[in-house]
Computed example of a mutant assay.
Amino acid sequence: MSGTDDNHAAPAATGPSNTPGLTLMTPAMKRSARKVDPTNPSDAALIAAATKAGAEIYDSDAEDLPGLVNGTNKPQLFRNVSWGPAATDYSDDFPIHPEFSQFVPGRWERMPDGTVVDQKSKLIVKFTDKKGNKRIFANPPPKDWNNQEAITALNKRTVQQVRRNTDVRFREVVSAYVAPERRWILANLTDGKPAAGWKRFVEQFNNKFAGRLLPGQDKVRPVRTHSSLTKEVERFGPEFYSKGQIPPSRS
């Protein structure tokens, strides 16, 4: 089995829930708090005491299979591994409402109780779909667990698998504009409006910031819509932007 989705479905013991639109929120812990630094002595001690996910998922030390991994838009970022028995084990629990905390950069993730877990164990996603079938998705591991682009792609892939096949819905936390973004907005407004028009304004803003990790931030900047940018300017224009000032930001 390669790093692609396992599309085989087995009948589940119980049918899907009738509860529509269940929303699965992001973890209570902030993303920065869940990141683990192996170079930090206290974090290194936690890693040493933790259990590494083993070959039942895939053999981390084995050579990759030939060719690029299938089923992902950025195959160059991921390993093409030979999956272990966990990827075809239908005897496990297959929840109707699967829980999923998004991956963070690094192999390890800090938990609310202070321990750390191996994120390798999260690569195989199992749940009961809306039709009552057991589903297994084996998501390829990043070549570099610290590569933000790979982690972002992995999160999007996993969220899509859950959203398309269950009643669970993920609600993104809205990211407030930060100081560098607001300085750019101020510099590109003339008399309170974009000098080159809103369409060009939105394009230029996203070309400048979308997908970038800014200093002092713990996640990449989101793509902003026309609606988001107009609301930002309309909300803070009279008090700040029109006076040559930027609104207060956390950074």
Rank of each mutant, 00 (worst) to 15 (best):
S2K: 10
S2T: 09
H8N: 07
A9C: 06
P11K: 14
T19Q: 10
T19R: 07
P27V: 03
P27T: 04
S32K: 10
R34L: 04
V36T: 07
T39E: 07
T39S: 07
N40Y: 01
D43E: 08
A45V: 12
I47E: 06
A48E: 04
A50R: 05
T51L: 12
E56W: 00
Y58I: 00
Y58V: 00
D64I: 00
G67C: 15
T72C: 08
N73T: 12
K74I: 06
Q76D: 13
L77H: 03
V81K: 00
S82R: 12
A86C: 03
A86S: 06
Y90L: 11
I96Q: 15
H97S: 15
P98W: 09
F100A: 13
S101I: 13
S101C: 15
Q102N: 15
Q102G: 14
F103R: 13
G106L: 11
W108I: 04
E109W: 11
E109P: 14
M111I: 14
M111K: 15
G114F: 01
V117K: 14
K122N: 15
K126Y: 00
T128I: 05
T128L: 06
I136D: 02
I136T: 04
P141W: 00
P141A: 03
D144S: 10
N146R: 04
Q148V: 06
E149W: 01
I151Y: 12
L154T: 06
N155F: 01
N155R: 01
K156P: 02
T158W: 01
Q160A: 12
Q161F: 15
V162I: 15
V162G: 02
E172H: 11
A176F: 12
A176K: 14
A179R: 15
A179M: 14
R182M: 10
G192F: 01
K193D: 13
A195H: 12
K199T: 11
V202S: 07
F205N: 12
F205L: 14
N207F: 07
A210Y: 03
A210P: 01
L214N: 04
G216E: 10
D218A: 05
R221S: 05
H226L: 12
S227L: 06
L229E: 04
T230F: 09
K231W: 14
K231F: 14
V233T: 12
V233N: 12
V233S: 10
E239M: 08
E239Q: 10
I246T: 08
